Deep mutational scan, measured.
Amino acid sequence: AEEIWQQSVIGDYLARFKNDRVKALKAMEMTWNNMEKKEKLMWIKKAAED
């Protein structure tokens, strides 16, 4: 689920960090860890469908 979420937001994060992939990935990891369980559930369901 986290991978699907990352694939959907990586472009936004890379743009925000001027294509600094290391910073973008760290920010994504922090965002994922801070997400509410119900927000993650949507992505977990999406992962299950694929």
Rank of each mutant, 00 (worst) to 15 (best):
A1E: 03
A1M: 07
A1D: 03
E2W: 14
E2D: 05
E2N: 10
E2Y: 14
E3Y: 14
E3G: 09
E3F: 13
E3P: 05
E3H: 12
I4M: 14
I4L: 15
W5H: 00
W5F: 07
W5S: 01
Q6P: 01
Q6L: 07
Q6I: 12
Q6M: 13
Q7G: 05
Q7A: 15
S8R: 04
S8M: 08
S8I: 08
S8G: 04
V9D: 00
V9R: 03
V9N: 05
V9L: 04
V9I: 04
V9A: 02
V9K: 05
I10V: 05
I10L: 11
I10P: 00
I10Y: 10
I10S: 04
I10W: 09
I10G: 02
G11Y: 09
G11I: 13
G11K: 13
D12C: 11
D12P: 02
D12K: 07
D12H: 08
D12N: 08
Y13A: 01
Y13N: 01
Y13W: 04
L14N: 02
L14M: 09
L14Q: 02
L14C: 09
L14G: 00
A15I: 13
A15Q: 11
A15S: 11
A15L: 13
R16V: 09
R16H: 09
R16L: 13
F17L: 04
F17M: 06
F17V: 03
F17C: 06
F17A: 06
F17S: 04
F17W: 06
K18P: 08
K18S: 13
K18N: 15
K18Q: 14
N19E: 08
N19L: 06
D20Y: 02
D20N: 07
D20W: 02
D20K: 02
D20A: 02
D20V: 03
R21Q: 08
R21D: 05
R21H: 11
R21N: 08
V22L: 12
V22R: 12
V22C: 13
V22A: 11
V22D: 13
V22K: 09
K23N: 08
K23C: 07
K23G: 09
K23F: 04
K23P: 03
K23D: 06
A24T: 04
A24Y: 01
A24V: 05
A24D: 00
A24N: 00
A24M: 07
L25Q: 10
L25M: 12
L25A: 09
L25G: 06
L25V: 09
L25H: 09
K26N: 10
K26V: 09
K26W: 07
K26I: 10
K26S: 09
A27T: 05
A27W: 07
A27S: 05
A27N: 06
A27M: 08
A27P: 00
M28E: 01
M28T: 01
E29S: 08
E29D: 08
E29V: 07
E29P: 00
E29K: 09
E29M: 07
E29Q: 12
E29C: 05
M30W: 11
M30F: 13
M30T: 11
M30K: 10
T31K: 07
T31H: 12
W32I: 00
W32V: 00
W32R: 00
W32D: 00
W32G: 00
N33H: 10
N33V: 07
N33A: 14
N33L: 11
N33W: 06
N34T: 10
N34V: 05
N34R: 08
N34L: 07
N34I: 05
N34P: 00
N34C: 08
M35W: 02
M35G: 01
M35V: 01
M35S: 01
M35E: 00
E36L: 04
E36Y: 02
E36S: 15
E36H: 06
E36K: 07
K37E: 15
K37A: 15
K38L: 11
K38V: 09
K38I: 10
K38F: 11
E39Q: 05
E39C: 06
E39V: 05
E39S: 03
E39M: 05
K40G: 01
K40W: 02
K40D: 02
K40L: 04
L41E: 15
L41I: 07
L41Y: 07
L41P: 02
L41G: 06
M42F: 15
M42G: 11
M42N: 12
M42Y: 15
W43F: 04
W43M: 02
W43N: 02
W43R: 02
W43Q: 03
I44W: 06
I44M: 09
I44E: 15
I44L: 10
I44P: 03
K45Y: 06
K45S: 13
K45P: 05
K45H: 08
K45Q: 13
K45R: 07
K46H: 06
K46Y: 07
K46N: 05
K46C: 11
K46E: 09
K46Q: 07
A47W: 14
A47F: 11
A47Y: 10
A47V: 06
A47L: 07
A47S: 06
A48F: 13
A48R: 11
A48G: 09
A48Y: 11
A48C: 15
A48S: 11
E49F: 09
E49Y: 09
E49M: 12
E49A: 11
D50S: 14
D50A: 15
D50V: 15
D50C: 14
D50Y: 14
